[in-house]
């Protein structure tokens, strides 16, 4: 317990002092905070266009935005978690283990009677606390923005949905941060500790969903999940590989929580794949960290 607490406090303190991840943290906070404003501007513009079309008598179709949920404005936050949040998590995780290796603190720790498991748990808990703090700031900004846009505060139900979205996003980022942490412990150099997880992230975010759903890579920047249109792959192959479309599963879950697109149904595959990834990433990185702790850097 002492090791856990000491590692937790030390990690929080070191992260607060570290200047390297500040830029990406700033980008994350700015984007997640302004996503509601971007969403609102777009909805307002579309509604104006719709009114113009109706006034010219060109359509009788209903306004596509009538009855949209108040959390619809936050739809872009989903993609910012996938893009910026994930990369920020990799950086935070990798920096934590690299800091020990750079300062050779790992050599010193190995000479003491310290539980490496408790230490890793303490460090990961600290990263989790930082991520939760950043997510909380982003959510508060969103709540205030939506309040200003709608001129009425969020309902209790919407508030709960928003918190659930924050929790799911936090879990995704923590799982990715723990992978960054493991890469940071295992990689031979500081560069590869950052680059390998980033390339892996790019493959999971763009290549795997494209193969399975036939969606163009740029279309995957859409906050709503890609829908399979047929790629010629056998269904058994699709079923085997679809759990790897982690970011698309996250989008499905987030869509369902924020009620962005009611036509999209949340499947058990999405929930199970997401949960399995989080469990695998956390347990895997903790077990690796105990084994890989103390590896020399740049040899």
């Amino acid at each position: 317990m002492i090791t856990f607490r000491a590692s937790f406090r030390h990690e929080l303190l070191s992260s607060a002092r570290s200047r390297s991840p500040q830029l990406i943290i700033a980008v994350f906070l700015v984007l997640t905070s302004i996503s509601s404003i971007i969403g609102w501007l777009t909805v307002r513009n579309v509604t104006k266009i719709y009114s113009d079309i109706v006034s010219q008598g060109l359509t009788r179709a209903p306004n596509p935005f009538t009855g949209t949920a108040s959390l619809y404005y936050m739809r872009d936050s989903v993609i910012y978690i996938v893009l910026v949040g994930s990369l920020m998590a990799i950086v935070l995780g990798a920096q934590t283990s690299l800091r020990d290796r750079n300062s050779s603190a790992d050599v010193l720790i190995k000479t003491r009677n310290v539980s490496l498991l408790s230490r890793a748990l303490g460090q990961l808990s600290a990263i989790g606390t930082i991520i939760a703090g950043l997510e909380a700031v982003a959510l508060v900004a969103s709540i205030l923005t939506i309040w200003m846009i709608q001129k009425t505060p969020l309902s209790l139900a919407s508030f709960v949905h928003l918190l659930s979205f924050g929790a799911i996003s936090g879990l995704l980022m923590l799982a990715i941060a723990s992978l960054g942490f493991a890469f940071g412990l295992y990689a031979r150099s500081e560069e590869s500790a950052l680059l390998y997880p980033i390339v892996t992230w790019a493959i999971i975010t763009f290549t795997v969903p494209q193969i399975i759903t036939s969606t163009h890579p740029v279309a995957l920047l859409n906050p709503t999940p890609a829908i399979a249109t047929g790629t010629g792959l056998a269904q058994s192959m699709v079923n085997t590989f679809s759990p790897l479309m982690l970011m698309e599963h996250f989008k499905y879950i987030a869509n369902s929580i924020l009620s962005i697109d009611s036509s999209l149904k949340l499947s058990t595959t999405s929930i199970v794949s997401f949960a399995a990834f989080v469990a695998f990433a956390l347990t895997g990185s903790i077990s690796i960290s105990a084994k890989a702790f103390g590896r020399k850097l740049n040899v």
């Binding site: 990406i24 980008v27 910026v84 560069e191 680059l195 980033i198």
Partner: peptide, 17 residues
């Protein structure tokens, strides 16, 4: 590490965001 972070953040903003 700082060079990578600045580069990756720039890539993120220019290419994706």
């Amino acid at each position: 590490a700082s060079a990578i972070l600045v580069g990756i953040t720039s890539w993120l903003v220019v290419v994706l965001v």
